[in-house]
C-alpha cells in the first residue's frame, strides 16, 4: 500500500466524490466498519505473530498449563462478536430505509433502461439519453423500468444503486448536494456493451439549471403526451364519466376492488399491467372487454400515460397546482 502516496500525489482518486444527502451517512458507516476491521485484523495478526514467535518450535517459553478448551472464553468472544455485529446490522438499516422513502416534494423523472442506453424523460417532457441534468438541492424520484433485460442504475457519487427490472417499476430517490458531473453506470451485467451503458449526472446550481432549461428546446410535458396517447388509442371512448370502463381520475394510490373480491392499491405497476394485460386484474362491476395494448406502446409511452392519469386526479381535485 506504499503505492498510495504517489497515487495521491498524482491526483488519482482513491475515494469517490460525495454529492448526495445520503452519501455522508454511507461513508460514515463505511469508516465505522473500517475501524472495526482494523481492530480485528490487528488482533488476529498480532495474536498470530506473537504466538508464532513466542511459541516457535525450540523456544524456551513456558508451556505449562496448556488450555485446550474453555467454555467461558468461547462464550465471551462469541457474545462480544455477536453484539458488535448486531450493532453494525442496526447501523446499516437507516440509510437503506431512507432510499425507499422519497420526500413529498420530490420531482418525478422517468427512466427507461434498454440495451445499451438510458432514456430519461423529465415531467416537462424534456428527453435525455445517458445524461440527467438536475438542480442541486432538489429531491429527485426516479421511476425506473427496463425494456429488455435487468439493468442497474448506479451513481457512485450519490452512494446509490437500484436494479432496473423489465415489467415492473422500481423507484429510488436522491437529493444532490454538490454541483458537478458524476458517473452514471449500469451495474447489472446486461450483455455485449454493458460497460458502455454509462452516462453522467449533471448537478447544477439554480441559475445554471435555469439556463440549461432555456437552452434545451421546449417539448410537450409528459402528461400532455399521455393525454394525446389517451385520445389516439381510443382510451377516452370508454374511460369517461358513465363510460364502459372505470373512470381514471384520482385512481393512483386509491383502493381498487377487483372482480375476484380482492382489493389492491392502484400503483404504477397496476396501471401498467392493466394497460398491457387488462384481463388479469379486472375492476369489480366491469366486463372484460378492454383489448390489450401489448406491443403497441413503448415503455416511455406507458410512463406518459401514467403521468397523464396521475395529472387527472390532481387537476380535478386541485390538490396542488403543478
Amino acid at each position: 500500500m506504499v503505492a498510495v502516496i504517489p497515487m495521491v500525489a498524482a491526483g488519482i482518486p482513491l475515494f469517490p466524490p460525495s454529492a448526495s444527502s445520503v452519501s455522508w451517512r454511507v461513508d460514515r458507516l463505511f469508516f465505522g466498519l473500517c475501524a472495526f476491521s482494523v481492530i480485528v485484523v490487528g488482533i488476529v495478526f498480532f495474536g498470530n505473530l506473537y504466538f508464532a514467535i513466542r511459541y516457535r518450535n525450540g523456544s524456551h517459553a513456558d508451556r505449562s498449563n496448556q488450555i485446550h478448551d474453555s467454555t467461558p472464553i468461547e462464550w465471551t468472544w462469541t457474545i462480544i462478536t455477536a453484539i458488535v455485529f448486531f450493532g453494525y446490522f442496526v447501523w446499516g438499516l437507516q440509510p437503506y430505509f431512507d432510499d425507499f422513502r422519497p420526500p413529498a416534494d420530490a420531482m418525478n423523472i422517468y427512466v427507461v433502461g434498454r440495451q445499451w442506453m438510458w432514456k430519461i424523460e423529465h415531467p416537462d417532457g424534456r428527453r435525455e439519453i445517458n445524461q440527467l441534468h438536475v438542480p442541486v438541492g432538489q429531491s429527485i424520484q426516479l421511476n425506473l423500468i427496463s425494456q429488455d433485460v435487468i439493468h442497474s442504475f448506479g451513481v457512485p457519487a450519490f452512494r446509490l444503486k437500484r436494479d432496473v427490472l423489465p415489467g415492473r417499476y422500481e423507484t429510488v430517490w436522491f437529493r444532490p448536494t454538490k454541483p458537478g458531473t458524476y458517473h452514471l453506470f449500469c451495474d447489472q451485467y446486461c450483455g455485449a456493451f454493458h460497460s458502455d451503458m454509462a452516462g453522467q449526472i449533471v448537478v447544477m446550481d439554480g441559475a445554471r439549471y435555469q439556463q440549461w432549461l432555456s437552452q434545451v428546446r421546449t417539448s410537450t410535458p409528459m402528461a400532455r403526451e399521455g393525454s394525446e396517447l389517451f385520445r389516439r388509442h381510443g382510451c377516452v371512448e370508454c374511460h369517461k364519466p358513465g363510460g364502459r370502463g372505470p373512470e381514471l381520475s384520482g385512481l393512483p394510490g386509491r383502493l381498487v376492488h377487483l372482480s375476484d373480491g380482492s382489493v389492491l392499491i392502484a400503483d404504477d405497476d397496476y396501471i401498467r399491467e392493466s394497460i398491457l394485460a387488462p384481463g388479469t386484474k379486472l375492476v369489480a362491476g366491469y366486463p372484460p372487454i378492454m383489448p390489450t395494448f401489448q406491443g403497441q406502446l413503448s415503455e416511455m409511452q406507458i410512463s406518459e400515460l401514467i403521468a397523464y392519469i396521475k395529472s387527472l386526479g390532481i387537476e380535478e381535485q386541485e390538490v396542488r397546482p403543478q
Binding site: V22, R25, V26, L29, F30, L33, F36, S37, V40, V41, V44, F45, N48, F85, Y88, F89, W91, G92, L93, Q94, P95, Y96, D98, D99, S152, G154, P156, R159, L160, K161, R162, D187, Q188
Partner: peptide, 26 residues
C-alpha cells in the same frame, strides 16, 4: 487465516444494507 479474516470482515460491509446499496455489483 489472514486472508479469510479480511474476506469475512468485508462481508460485513456488504451485509450492511445501506452500504451494500453503494458497493453492490462493484
Amino acid at each position: 487465516i489472514g486472508l479469510f479474516t479480511i474476506g469475512g470482515l468485508t462481508g460485513l460491509f456488504l451485509a450492511a444494507l445501506g452500504l451494500d446499496a453503494h458497493v453492490h455489483d462493484t
